[in-house]
Simulated scan of single mutants.
Amino acid sequence: MRRRTFVSVAGGSLAALSGCLGNGGENGNGNGGNGDSTDTRDATETEDGGTATPVEDPTITIATYDSFVDGEDPVGPWLKSEFEAEYDATVEFRTPSSGINQYIQRAQQGAEIDVDLYVGLNVDELIRIDEQLDSALFDSLDGEIDGSDRVRDELRFDPDGRAIPYDTGYISLVYDEREVTPKTFEDLTDSENAGELIVQNAQQSDPGVAFLLWTIHEFGADGYLDYWSDLQDNDVRVLGSWDDAYNAYLNEEASMVVSYSTDQVYYGDQPRHQVGFLNDQGYAQPEGMARFADAPNPDAARELMEFMLRPDVQGVIAQKNVQFPAVADADLDEEFDAVAHVPPEPVTFGYDELAGNLDGWIEAWARQIVG
């Protein structure tokens, strides 16, 4: 698909047909064709007397989350511009309000899914897909994506090779060093820090789920609720989303908030934007991209996935998405390395550990903490 001429040949040889034509996907307006339209574009005569009609470039439709395409200098528009400049394709984005749930529901209803890629998939959502659907929502691409062998092994979270990591975050604390110095989980329950911690609701927020899982990793399935009871006794504040929690922190309603270890990429090394790794740990939260099983343009989607794993592109994705790259050879500048902090001991739960357990852990937490 890279800067090739697409032609469909009528009444002549097939030798001129080149490039990745997909499987009859969307037109340049993002609307699927009905198969009945007549192509009115100018046809050219081939050497053997047939006719060749230019084929419209494919449109790759990506479903993702809001901040990937909106906000201050998001990565999505840059990705679209750079890919379209190098490849004969158009990139369009959709940001469904219910995220991956929209496509789970459509699959359950047998409805068409006219999207090629989902960008922003995590292990929690992958487990939800597998628990709720009997048929495959995404293709298994293990070994088919050039560059996927360069993805760091510790970030791979899909045993079936459907979700390919493209970046990762590490959940940590962000704190005001003038007020608190959190070093351990026990520090958060110390009476001196009463009312100073803001967390997200694990029923509504990815960082909220990650912090909950971090406490389960630390205290075990039999002990995490006791730890959360101690947090409650110390007046922990549970707000809905990351935005809710972080805005409250920016308004100085508390001295600690659960957030990401890349906080200083945006705010710099300021007293109120210190990164805290409890027990020298941070919870890894890789994000993946996956191609829908019925993608209108599967070959074009594959090339976009490969593009996103290139070292130069990985460097820009990391900096604009304020996350860490998924590959070890990403092109990153020294300034990013200086302010983006990797925990001494990254921890996480894998697919097999979460499958069959995640929903129960969240439900038990919700009954005690927000119920």
Score class of each variant (00 low, 15 high):
Arg3Thr: 13
Phe6Asp: 12
Val9Ile: 15
Val9Phe: 10
Ala10Thr: 15
Ser18Ala: 15
Gly22Ser: 06
Gly22Tyr: 02
Gly24Arg: 06
Asn27Gly: 12
Asn27Phe: 12
Asn29Pro: 03
Asn31Val: 14
Gly35Ala: 03
Gly35Phe: 03
Ser37Tyr: 14
Thr38Pro: 12
Asp39Cys: 11
Thr40Phe: 11
Arg41His: 13
Thr46Ser: 15
Thr46Tyr: 13
Asp48Pro: 08
Pro54Phe: 02
Val55Gly: 08
Asp57Cys: 13
Pro58Phe: 15
Ala63Ile: 03
Ala63Ser: 09
Thr64Asn: 04
Ser67Pro: 00
Gly71Pro: 01
Pro74Met: 05
Gly76Ala: 01
Trp78Ala: 10
Glu82Gly: 09
Tyr87Leu: 03
Asp88His: 04
Ala89His: 01
Thr90Pro: 00
Ser97Gln: 13
Ser98Ile: 08
Gly99Ser: 08
Ile104Ala: 00
Gln105Gly: 03
Arg106Asn: 02
Val115Glu: 00
Asp124Glu: 11
Asp124Gly: 13
Asp124Cys: 10
Glu125His: 06
Arg128Pro: 09
Ile129Thr: 02
Ile129Arg: 00
Phe138Arg: 03
Ser140Asn: 14
Ser140Val: 06
Asp142Cys: 09
Gly143Met: 01
Glu144Phe: 10
Ile145Ser: 06
Gly147Val: 02
Ser148Arg: 07
Arg152Cys: 13
Asp153Phe: 07
Leu155Trp: 02
Pro159Asp: 01
Pro159Arg: 00
Gly161Ser: 10
Gly161Glu: 06
Asp167Gln: 14
Ser172Cys: 13
Val174His: 14
Asp176Pro: 15
Glu186Ser: 14
Asp187Gly: 09
Leu188Lys: 03
Asp190Ile: 10
Asp190Gln: 11
Gly195Glu: 14
Glu196Gly: 09
Val199Phe: 02
Gln200Trp: 04
Asp206Asn: 12
Asp206His: 08
Pro207Ser: 05
Pro207Lys: 01
Leu212Ser: 09
Leu212Lys: 06
Trp214Ser: 11
Thr215Arg: 02
Glu218Gly: 10
Gly220Phe: 10
Gly223Lys: 15
Gln232Val: 14
Asn234Glu: 15
Asp235Ser: 15
Arg237Leu: 13
Leu239Ile: 12
Glu253Ala: 10
Glu253Pro: 06
Glu253Tyr: 07
Val257Thr: 01
Val258His: 04
Thr262Gly: 07
Asp263His: 12
Val265Phe: 11
Val265Asp: 11
Tyr267Ser: 11
Gly268Cys: 11
Pro271Tyr: 04
Arg272Ser: 09
Arg272Gly: 07
His273Trp: 04
Val275Asp: 00
Leu278His: 00
Asp280Val: 00
Ala284Pro: 04
Ala284Phe: 01
Met289Val: 03
Arg291Pro: 00
Asp294Met: 03
Ala295Ile: 00
Pro298Asn: 03
Glu303Leu: 08
Glu303Ala: 07
Glu303Trp: 03
Met305Gln: 08
Phe307Gln: 05
Met308Glu: 04
Met308Leu: 09
Leu309Asn: 02
Gln314Ala: 09
Ile317Glu: 04
Lys320Val: 07
Gln323Val: 09
Pro325Tyr: 02
Ala326Ile: 06
Val327Ala: 05
Leu332Gly: 04
Glu335Pro: 00
Glu335Tyr: 12
Asp337Pro: 03
Ala338Gly: 05
Ala340Met: 05
Ala340Phe: 05
His341Leu: 09
Pro346His: 03
Thr348Leu: 07
Phe349Thr: 05
Glu353Val: 08
Ala355Glu: 12
Ala355Asn: 12
Gly360Ala: 11
Ile362Leu: 09
Glu363Gly: 07
Glu363Val: 05
Gly371Arg: 02
